[in-house]
Write a protein that binds this DNA or RNA. Structure first.
Lengths: 263, 263
DNA sequence: GAGTGGTCTAGACCACTGT
DNA sequence: CAGTGGTCTAGACCACTCC
């Protein structure tokens, strides 16, 4: 016995993929679909909910149901780190031309809208342990969002932390209006004499977004996000930067190359 | 105006986290909860659906709603690859002691239940391109599942592909009954004269599981999975193995270290 | 058979959007 | 204002599980 909502979802999925409605176009209202399929509204809603978690459609309260417009994809490779390190000692003209986001997206500086907010915070248990500093140590919290000018949602949400005393030698690093910084974090750290030895990236979890995350990243509640933690370790073995990054699962691809020593 | 289902979900979440019901215990039935909260059943169901996507509860048709039992976590680091390469030339006694899964989970061989099925398939467009061979080339498809003996669901679902002619020199590699192979894939390849140069791991996407994946991995439909593609490249630059791995987002942690060259 | 969650219904009312 | 999706209701019937 086939389930009605599955059949409706399958039928609509097929029609969307066949291009019956173009990306951005409105689907028939739930009331119209109810008459089309001769089913109750809740059944229609269940079918639409399924397509929404697949990222095929987008429901907008008061407006209707729309075919989701494909978004700019991001390919984040771990080669970006060496690339950024090489740039960190270049002249400002070179650094200003492209940053890691341009590197990941294939877009140019003019295509991107950048946003940064800085806060002074005290290290809690978790951050204190990660940095190897006492609880309560002054940190700079930097909240970043970069988006493609032609799209409303940013590529990710980034919360980055620095130990304030470690970077206070260059007051510009505490000033959010100086962002976006040409050459990125590795150049910033270079200005206070810090060189990175390695970068550790951890996929902490993949899970559905909170309502907040879904709103900010332009996702439906049923989709998935990746929580990535990036830790920068300097040549003295100290953790000098830590970033918690929330990445939309539907537009993010990550690539990690692990070289092996020869026999 | 607070939403009823949110309030009920919040209340139940609080009670679960406070330990009112232990992991594995049954929650009151929907009918009982309806009376408790003086709301309709659909409202109760909406609240429970939210807790289910968070991985807090587990609904079982005909049985009830249960507090989810925390599962064995897996930490998958990219150091595992060099570790496995170092083992590939060791004596069988050494190789048989531990494999990468034991390395990732901290369990021993006796704790693990291994399952492998082999198939002969022809390369489609995608695999042919990845391997750099003509469409239709004979491949060996190997489907792996490893689980913790005390838990029903495997740690992941793995589909691994090899070019048949490349490994046919050792007939044991085409025989599923020879699995689990002491020393893993890198030792298998070693027996036919292949040495790996590097391993590329790509997070293709994070998304909700299909019904099939949810069932096999013991997940609720609203949770998230990670689709990881691992590519093994040998010292001649050839792709010699490709694996598509489906990882439950709630129990998988991945760690990638990227070393940087010194200034 | 009793109890559980799953599917489906018909309809009320609310909140948001555009005119 | 009309049209849209969001919340909530009361209840029927089915499918699964266990006794």
């Amino acid at each position: 016995m086939p389930k009605a909502y599955e059949e409706i979802a399958d039928d609509l999925r097929r029609q969307i993929q066949a291009g019956k409605w173009q990306p951005g176009e409105r689907l028939p209202s739930e009331e119209e679909l109810r008459r089309t399929y001769d089913r109750g509204v809740p059944t229609i809603r269940q079918a639409l909910a399924e397509l929404e978690t697949e990222g095929l459609i987008d429901k907008r309260h008061g407006k209707g149901t729309f075919v989701r417009v494909p978004r700019r994809k991001v390919l984040r490779t771990n080669e970006r780190h060496q690339w950024e390190k090489d740039r960190a000692r270049q002249a400002e003209e070179v650094r200003a031309q492209t940053g890691v986001t341009e590197h990941d997206t294939g877009l140019t500086v003019n295509d991107l809208v950048f946003n940064a907010r800085f806060y002074e915070v005290e290290a809690g248990e978790e951050l204190a342990e990660a940095f190897g500093v006492p609880v309560g140590t002054a940190l700079v919290e930097r909240v970043y969002r970069t988006r493609y000018a032609r799209e409303p949602a940013p590529f990710n949400l980034t919360h980055s932390y620095l130990v304030r005393d470690l970077v206070a030698g260059n007051p510009d690093l505490l000033d959010e209006t100086k962002e976006p910084w040409p050459g990125g974090t590795q150049n910033q750290l270079h200005t206070v004499g810090i060189e990175l030895d390695r970068i550790v990236e951890e996929v902490i979890a993949a899970r559905p977004p909170t309502h907040e995350e879904a709103r900010e990243l332009g996702m439906s509640p049923g989709m998935a996000i990746i929580h990535l933690r990036k830790t920068c370790i300097d040549t003295d073995g100290r953790v000098v930067e830590l970033s918690d990054i929330t990445l939309p699962g539907d537009r993010t691809r990550m690539k990690f190359v692990t070289p092996l020593v020869r026999w």
